[in-house]
Design a protein around this nucleic acid. Structure first.
Length: 423
RNA sequence: GGAGAAUUGGCAGAGUGGUCGAAUGCGGCAGUCUUGAAAACUGUUGAGGGUCACACCUCCGGGGGUUCGAAUCCCUCAUUCUCCGCCA
């Protein structure tokens, strides 16, 4: 959620930057400013009324004490009227505040200066590419065929137990999953992140805090009995660690990494690019979260990009980094880099990580602040990124590392798997 | 699941109808002292709205109510603790 004072001071900049998302925000922005003026006017009127009522109440108290009950009763009539007035004002104020909030919830974050204009994947900017695309043997298979051939992932069994999009990993497939999770976490901890194990369900306040609610309700599984939501990403519980707190400046940065399963309802389409592991209702992911000082958040973002790169390099997977265009940048992000690995057998790029700086957009809703050097509370910047999403990494490994004699395990993973080949 | 108790500022903890945004202690910040640090002493220190700055308004777990007036009384929800039951 954007801050109203920021909108007021940077009206033109906000409208111009939002146009990178192909949004004509002029009307919304003007409404925000108007609503806020209205809000202020109502607040002032209400405050004045309450001030009068307060001072009358004090007077009444004094009159009672000095035994002048008659005079006190006269004043009571006055306060009765003031009460009606203030009730009415409070209702109107509340309505205005809600309207303003609803409006602010609908305005996405202002893209960073470097974000290219555009509205689809095609407009994303490739900024780096590395690694060799392996030459596969004749008869190389996509991962869903490999999964069957080596009996490591059972999609049908998952369908029987739960439904489509809930695969069952078994044998060396299960072990490989566990190896990847442990490897990612170890790498993140070595880079200075603190490991967390987080709840897989969150309450309404947390879902609101990171912006899954009120708009994206349908994307989460909802446990109605207890009004809890299954997390769509560790970002939700992980970022809500910092909801409603004031940090000391010297506590920054805060860094979190955690492994969680992620649950997404999103209505799946069918076809080759959602086949196999490409899109699931339940998948595993290791997440990175940082809370940063505003002056340092973009350095931190670069650091996260480098960190994720290191992992992909060590796994020897061909990858590229995209700077997302305005239209493809998620609602809350100011700048997002996507990582994609190349799946040789599918002959396409697969997104495996998304690293974003949200600046103060999440912090504003979360009320995540720190005491700055002036002793004032200031909103912190939040960032997050995946390191990494398991299914597509697994798909990439299976497909790129396949040989005629089996699937070779990347060297860095071998200490974790305890085997060198799936055959 | 049953019975009881509690929820106050960064933390601990007073406060049961008006003068309470709230004693006190700890912590934080600034200063005195010191070569420096510690100790001691002095001052300062919640958040949001509003204002050029004041004034003023709101907030004592959330929501609602009683009252001229609520941290304090009532209702409700949530959470925590203790005892009992159940349980990986």
């Amino acid at each position: 959620m954007l801050q109203v004072p920021f909108i007021k001071e940077n009206k033109n900049l906000v409208i111009e930057r939002l146009s990178k998302r192909n949004i004509d925000a002029a009307e919304m922005i003007n409404n925000v400013i108007d609503f806020d003026e209205d809000r202020k006017r109502l607040q002032t009127a209400l405050d004045a009324t309450l001030a009068e009522a307060n001072s009358l109440s004090k007077e009444i108290g004094n009159l009672y004490k000095s035994g002048e009950a008659q005079k006190a009763n006269l004043l009571k009539e006055k306060t009765g009227k003031l009460k009606d007035v203030s009730k009415d004002l409070a209702e109107r104020l509340n309505g205005k505040v809600e309207a303003l909030k609803d409006l602010l919830y609908k305005i996405p974050n202002v893209p960073h200066d470097s974000v290219p204009q555009g509205n689809s994947e095609a407009d994303n900017e490739e900024i780096f590419k590395a690694g060799e695309i392996p030459k596969l043997h004749k008869g190389a298979l996509p991962h869903w065929e490999l999964a069957k051939k080596y009996d490591i992932i059972d999609f049908e069994l998952g369908t029987k137990i739960t439904g489509a999009g809930f695969p069952v990993y078994k044998g060396k497939g299960a072990r490989l999953q566990r190896a990847l999770i442990a490897y990612f976490l170890d790498t993140n901890v070595a880079a200075g992140y603190t490991e967390y194990q987080l709840p897989l369900m969150v309450n309404e306040a947390s879902a609101l805090g990171t912006g899954q609610l009120p708009d994206k309700e349908g994307q989460m599984y909802h446990v109605t009995e207890d009004n809890l939501y299954l997390i769509p990403t560790a970002e939700v519980p992980g970022t809500n660690i910092f909801r409603d707190i004031v940090l000391n400046e010297n506590e920054l940065p805060k860094t979190v990494t955690g492994y969680t399963p992620c649950f997404r309802r999103e209505a799946g389409s069918y076809g080759s690019h959602v086949r196999g592991l490409n899109r699931l209702h339940q998948f595993d992911k290791v997440e990175l979260i940082r809370v940063e000082h505003p002056t340092k958040s973009y350095n931190a973002l670069d650091g996260m990009v480098k960190h994720v790169e290191t992992i992909l390099k060590d796994l020897k997977l061909p990858y590229r980094i995209l700077r997302l265009c305005g239209g493809d940048t998620s609602f809350a992000a100011a700048l997002t880099y996507d990582f994609e690995i190349f799946s040789t057998a599918q002959d396409r790029w697969l997104e495996v990580s998304s690293v974003s700086n949200f600046e103060t957009f999440q912090a504003n809703r979360l009320k995540l602040r720190f005491k700055n050097s002036d002793g004032k509370n200031e909103l912190a910047h939040t960032l997050n990124g995946s390191s990494l999403a398991l299914p597509r990494i697994l798909a990439g490994i299976l497909e790129n590392y396949q040989t005629e004699s089996g699937i070779v395990i990347p060297e860095v993973l071998q200490p974790y798997t305890g085997f060198k080949i799936i055959d």
